[in-house]
């Protein structure tokens, strides 16, 4: 019984806990912060034209990268082919320039 009365008393007191509440206040810089936010909001967004230009630019960049890749693969393939043939030519030319004999001659004579 006493407990029920106690609970009711607590409920009543809690219900009146906000009776003398004072208004919460912001600081003096509220307006400055608000102004900054409004300015940020009002900054012009990218116009439609520049968005289209941005899309075209990115497509062009991707195409350019693809072309460069294909070209580099093609050039690299050609280069390795000419490099192999030039190595052979270089050996022959070296032998002729320094009047070198064929090295296989000595191996043949040893036998």
């Amino acid at each position: 019984m006493g407990s029920k009365k106690h609970i009711e008393h607590e409920v009543e007191k809690t219900l009146h806990a906000l009776d003398r509440i004072e208004r919460a206040q912001t600081d003096d810089f509220f307006y400055s912060r608000l102004q900054a936010k409004i300015e940020q909001q009002n900054e012009p967004a990218l116009p439609q034209q520049s968005r289209e230009f941005g899309f075209a630019f990115s497509v062009a960049a991707v195409v350019l990268i693809l072309i460069l890749n294909v070209a580099s693969i093609y050039i690299h393939g050609n280069y390795t082919a000419t490099e192999e043939s030039s190595v052979v030519n270089y050996e022959e030319q070296l032998m002729a320039d320094y009047q070198l004999f064929d090295l296989s001659y000595y191996t043949q004579t040893e036998e």
């Binding site: 219900l15 806990a17 906000l18 509440i21």
Partner: peptide, 14 residues
């Protein structure tokens, strides 16, 4: 912040 110290706990519950 506008609450009296004695009411803070009760106000939190409310």
């Amino acid at each position: 912040p506008g609450l009296e110290l004695e009411n803070k706990e009760r106000a939190g519950i409310l």
